[in-house]
Write a protein that binds this DNA or RNA. Sequence first.
RNA 1: GGGCCGGUAGCUUAGUCCGGUUAAAGCACCUGGCUCUUAACCAGGUGACCGAGGGUUCAAAUCCCUCCCGGCCCGCCA
Length: 545
Amino acid sequence: MSSEEDAPDSTSEFWADEAARRVAESGRPPVVKGGVSPSGVPHVGNFNEVLRGAFVVRALERRDDVSGEPRQVFTSDDRDPLRRVPHTVLSPEGELVELDAEERDELSEHLGKPYVDVPSPFGEGSWAEHFASFLRDDAEKLEVPVEFVSNDELYDDGRFDEPIRAALSNLDVSREVIARHQRTAGDDYVPFMPICDDCGRITPTVTAVNLDDETVDYVCDEADLGGETIEGCGHSGTATFREGKLPWRFEWPAQWMILNVGFEPFGKDHAEGSWESGVEIAEEVYDIKPPEPLVYEFFLVDGDKMSASAGNVYTVSDILRYVEPTVLRYFFALDPKKQRDLSLADVHHLVNDFDRVEDAYYGREEAADSTEKLYAERVYEDLRSPTDDLSHEPVRPPYTFAAMVGVAEDDEARLNTLRRSGHLPEDATETQKQDALRRVELARNWALDYDNQYAVRVLDEAPDTEFDEDTRAAFGDLADVVESGASPDEIQNAVFETAREHDLDVGGFFGDGYRLFLGQDSGPKLGPLLGALDREFVVERLRSA
RNA sequence: GGGCCGGUAGCUUAGUCCGGUUAAAGCACCUGGCUCUUAACCAGGUGACCGAGGGUUCAAAUCCCUCCCGGCCCGCCA
């Protein structure tokens, strides 16, 4: 390995390979975990957790020095308590909706209860299920083979019994470790929070620990959950280890223990607090080796952090309205340590970067730099769906070009334009045609939603503009040419010819053409534009001028 | 108070870990081509004192130190 030929060249290592190497070389199990608390809105940021892990699983699969089948699990931390009622939630249709006062009142009845016991604001099922179903659907759309695990079920099934026993039987150690990280944890701290038998809320006040029968006694007191004080009902009771939960700092490492986790990506929010305490709790309380970590930066969207209250939260589906799943996977394959901006307004840059990687992979273009080379040679295959046939070469017309091609309504017209411009091979397969049409659709969505310069809009009705007699006559001649089935190039030429025949200024006539169809003074090359539109429509519009 | 990330052509970034030929790409812009006009295609070109200062070195965008600016996170819960 240390001979000169094998020495690493100047290209750097894909971060997922580096992570996989750390897992393998330290002898950790090839199990990648992630997880979220089902609060707020399930947004595209949550897929940091899912996709970063997915790339590491793929990297582990390439190695022959790991024991066992690499896999990815993802916990829904659905026994966490509802701490505050959000103003905005995601409807079953995936729309952000505001909750009205009545709905919020109803939900506030459930403050302090585990998410599995909070009803969904949309009727069917629990809050937790509602939230998790989005993550599952989105993971499927991005074709990530991840196994979702309900934390609540792990408790019910007794999987947490062992770590709970460890934490409670060595209370001195638990208290000492937690005190290093959490000032509020005093001498009477007990790392277990029972669910009140009476009101169903999670309460932190444990009055006695009975190790022999694996229960705790509690009083349902007020709970201070992250600045939100939630009233208790005053009930006194006894709870088993399965009728409560560990506090987050103890729960996370307990999950590592239960699920045999060897690698875990997490956001920078965990990097200082719960990760550091988690490592110590894993080693000193549970006597296990913590997983290899990967701290990722949060990304911004259009320059701002996502925030439900600010109304700029994006789901995976929102992004997939503009780009192929493969392109979104590419975004998540970029260096996780760098904070970046997922700019939707300028998403054509991201798409273009991806296209270049794809071009380099298929040898259509030279890689521009070492990073592009690395992504083409090492990463590209992981961007494609695991079920995809790599010998299938996707056809992806340039994004901004595709946006304009989208001015034509029907598929045949779009394909013709693409074929003529050299972006679709004559012998394209059915799948390649679908690739191309998909790209046109996505780019068109983007151009129209952002109403940018690529949003070419044809007027539904002829404009009020008065054209002079010569111009109208020229339009009439042009109509005849179009009606005869002229090609885009022939139409382009006909514009020049008819202008001259009618003694019109060529530039002015072009302008009139744009005014007639687009209601503006200029636009894309007129011949291809008219050629792409429905023939009868064009003829009718020309003659109606 | 602590931590992470960034400051490279007009814009967005790659390159920084592992220092080494004229600092790379896309977009924008300009020019040329497509028989003639302009934003759909093709080819080429202009464009950067690499945030500031100091240090190490034969050699610094890259390593070290100090500082300035911007973004985000943590310090209670999760």
